[in-house]
């Protein structure tokens, strides 16, 4: 009652105020003001730096002179650059494929379990994703230690020759990818498990009546039903893996002889340690095309899902 009275009194006061005030009370203005901090953060700390790095890439080392594509020309002539391109692609593509495969397999195994037990297993299997990657990579570094490697200890006892994990370029590449798979596949597992839960059970029953075996059920029912999630997860992971920094930085720091550098770590080495910010910015810009392609497909996928709903 008191509310109603109070409102009655306010109404004339409100209509008598300035049009600016009325404008400020409009729904879209309030909405814009509410979104303003977000717009400010995105504009100042994401959009502006992204474009600024294009500008930086066109300067000389002391950042006093405009050199156009000079940095890129310099990069194209360097062997290390092509090595980094090759390793980045190898690293991202192999790791994403294996993460997807491992995640897919593990998700099916977890899905097979009686539903009371699934929680426990899911909880254990997600742990690599929860530990900060920098911390878990330290554990891997210790497992791969040249003189005290716990894996080599097991190998010696099994009669297998020891492996110079991070000392040999090929093994170092393998290790970097292995750790990335270890960190990332639980994420795929969780996504695929969620997708598996949404596959209607009737489809499997119908397939069982038609005499389909387990492989046919996975190939003809689960895969097509999960296609969307499989695509989106793989694209997300491609972006994250391609831009990966922590694992390579801690595990090998690019070595041996720059063989395991990816774009992010090499850009860091050049810009922060080498003090050549324009060159580092040019290197990191090479991540952009792949990111743009992946982002385009993700967006299309998300939009399509939005329209279906």
């Amino acid at each position: 009652m008191a509310d109603v009275v109070a409102r009655d009194i306010r109404i004339p006061a409100r209509s008598g105020q300035l049009s600016l005030h009325k404008f400020a009370r409009r729904k879209s203005t309030i909405a814009f003001l509410m979104a303003l901090p977000l717009i400010a953060i995105i504009a100042c700390l994401v959009i502006y730096p992204a474009f600024y790095s294009i500008h930086l890439a066109s300067l000389n080392k002391s950042m006093t002179k405009f050199v156009g594509f000079g940095n890129f020309e310099f990069l194209f002539r360097r062997n290390t650059f092509w090595m980094v391109v090759e390793q980045s692609l190898l690293f991202a593509i192999t790791a994403v494929i294996f993460k997807a495969v491992v995640g897919f397999i593990v998700a099916h195994f977890v899905h097979n379990l009686p539903s009371q037990g699934q929680r426990k297993w899911r909880g254990m299997l997600l742990i690599p994703w929860v530990i900060p990657p920098a911390m878990s990579t330290l554990a891997w570094l210790w497992l791969f230690d040249p003189s005290y490697s716990a894996f080599n200890w097991v190998f010696t006892h099994l009669g297998i020759p020891q492996v110079a994990w991070l000392g040999n370029p090929y093994w170092a590449r393998f290790c970097v990818i292995l750790v990335n798979i270890w960190v990332g596949s639980p994420f795929f597992m969780i996504m695929y498990l969620a997708a598996l839960k949404s596959v209607p059970e009737q489809l499997h029953e119908a397939a069982a009546i038609d005499g389909a075996n387990w492989f046919q059920k996975i190939w003809y029912i689960n895969l097509p039903m999960m296609r969307n999630i499989i695509q989106i997860t793989a694209l997300f992971s491609l972006i994250v893996t391609f831009a990966n920094f922590d694992i390579v930085k801690i595990l090998t720091n690019g070595g041996p002889v720059d063989q395991t550098h990816v774009f992010a770590t090499w850009a860091f080495t050049l810009a922060i340690w080498g003090n050549d910010i324009p060159l580092g910015a040019s290197v990191s810009l090479f991540m952009a095309p792949i990111l743009a392609i992946a982002a385009f497909f993700i967006l299309r996928n998300v939009r399509r899902r939005g329209n279906e709903a």
Partner: peptide, 24 residues
């Protein structure tokens, strides 16, 4: 557009942004 933009900025990795931010 802003909602889509928010999603896209989420996809821009830190390893692309740290150099220009450092310089700024």
């Amino acid at each position: 557009t802003l909602a889509t933009g928010v999603f896209l900025t989420y996809l821009i990795p830190e390893s692309l942004l740290f150099i220009p931010l450092f310089k700024t």
